[in-house]
Design a protein around this nucleic acid. Sequence first.
DNA 1: CGAAAAATGGAATAAATATTCCAAAACGCG
DNA 2: CGCGTTTTGGAATATTTATTCCATTTTTCG
Lengths: 280, 280
Amino acid sequence: MDAADQILPDAPRGAAPLTVEEFRDRLAEITDDLPRRLRQCADFIAANTDRIAVSTVAELAAGAEVPPSALMRFCQILGFSGFSEMQKLFREAYAPGFPDYSTRLKNLKNGGAGSPSALLGEFIEAGRLSLEALAKSADEAALAHAVQVLSGAATVHVVGLRRAFPVATYLAYVFEKMSVPAMLHDGVGKLDHRFALRPGDAVLAITFAPYSEETIALAQDAHDRGLPVVALTDRLTSPLARTADAILTVPEVDFGAFRSLSATIAMAIALAVAVGSARD
Amino acid sequence: MDAADQILPDAPRGAAPLTVEEFRDRLAEITDDLPRRLRQCADFIAANTDRIAVSTVAELAAGAEVPPSALMRFCQILGFSGFSEMQKLFREAYAPGFPDYSTRLKNLKNGGAGSPSALLGEFIEAGRLSLEALAKSADEAALAHAVQVLSGAATVHVVGLRRAFPVATYLAYVFEKMSVPAMLHDGVGKLDHRFALRPGDAVLAITFAPYSEETIALAQDAHDRGLPVVALTDRLTSPLARTADAILTVPEVDFGAFRSLSATIAMAIALAVAVGSARD
DNA sequence: CGAAAAATGGAATAAATATTCCAAAACGCG
DNA sequence: CGCGTTTTGGAATATTTATTCCATTTTTCG
């Protein structure tokens, strides 16, 4: 036949991934049936996707322990015209958005620290960063487990003091609206209401460094009595980790001395609403 | 004299910054006394530091609106041998957060309608949208005015109930930390503590539709007695508008029945911190 | 105003980097 | 085992990108 029939079998032209996500899908899709050297490329690229934007063909090839030409072929198999086109995707996808945080903080201290609008801008930014970090780091399995634990409880005891108190009150509000039996431990009058914990109940404890004595004590107490404890805290190394059956961490960005709470509240509402729905 | 005396005055060799921190310091240090074109380079680089790792000389030069040679000179003034050496610093420090935020968010949301992760994704998005809307719509004059009113108060009375209560408690916390005399009106025991309003005090009232009777009543009472009222609410047509001396509105995006509160809290902290600073 | 110094822009060159090509090796299959 | 096919490595080439150099312009200062 004529030239038109000489179709290249495994290099579909015009099928180059347009987003990082498409790229990953395509990579996963082809990795399995690839000859040895190209497989090495695929594995290395999958493990080092983030370095594509800032590396040369030679560097990546060396990392994957293949000659540069193998890496070129690999790019073409993915649908790109060559390495440069592939790199372009990652260079453009890298949308910074955040000129790093510590620098801005310094600028603010030096500059017009007094201006309320500047402060507002910083707190907005801290909130945004917190939410983005939460999106990236959220542990879906831990969340699902926490929902399961709380859904089975007769009454949910919510405890969080000082800076965590706003979160606790909001949780109490949402639980009430969703008809979930819940009790807010607010420490009013130094009454600890510890006797209120009944078999079948569960505790939702919220605390961040520096951790509140009272919150940890209540969680410990519940744990000792065999009640399940869900912790909403800042680190896996939090003192709640020992007593908790499910632990949810939220990466919260502080600005100055104050926590934005955005991420914590997002997590709290999601948890409460999920529990509310699960109980129906 | 001989060749050794021909020292280049403003290109200190071997003084290249070794970290991003050092780079920024050096940049800030020299920016002020730089001729026009080099100043343009400095300004553009300062604002786009994060793009250095993934750009070419030509791209950056175009961005700064200078010829490539000007940018080369700029690199050398900073102490680098050339652009490549400078870029190397940023390529090594380069650590993008993969998987990127929007991809990850999509994944969370696709976790099955009603699943906890999907809910979390929605609340994160609602929070982020709220913050962005606030960044765009914030009324600087109103904020500055509110700060001024509260700074002059002997005691700040914070009132906010139901869904606004978390914000009120957080404000009380921040005021306490900043040594601003403040009183939280929490409605415990249906005691309204109205008598606590003294001449020279001010009220900070927080409420959203559907507005709380008690909050509006307290604001009205204060207004009738000639005390200044600052309102943190959702619309300019809020019932607080009549009684308030300063009115701050926050555009909050709901998901389902629940408010994300991110924007409200950002505004609240900014207000509280600004007031705290102003009183010193 | 005029001379000296500094700064600038662009063209020329050097270096790095990507890409192609093809001969050699490995593989699959009758 | 031997023939056709696929895969591989590296050398050759093309392209992009960085860097230097110098004639021209602008600024500085006596």
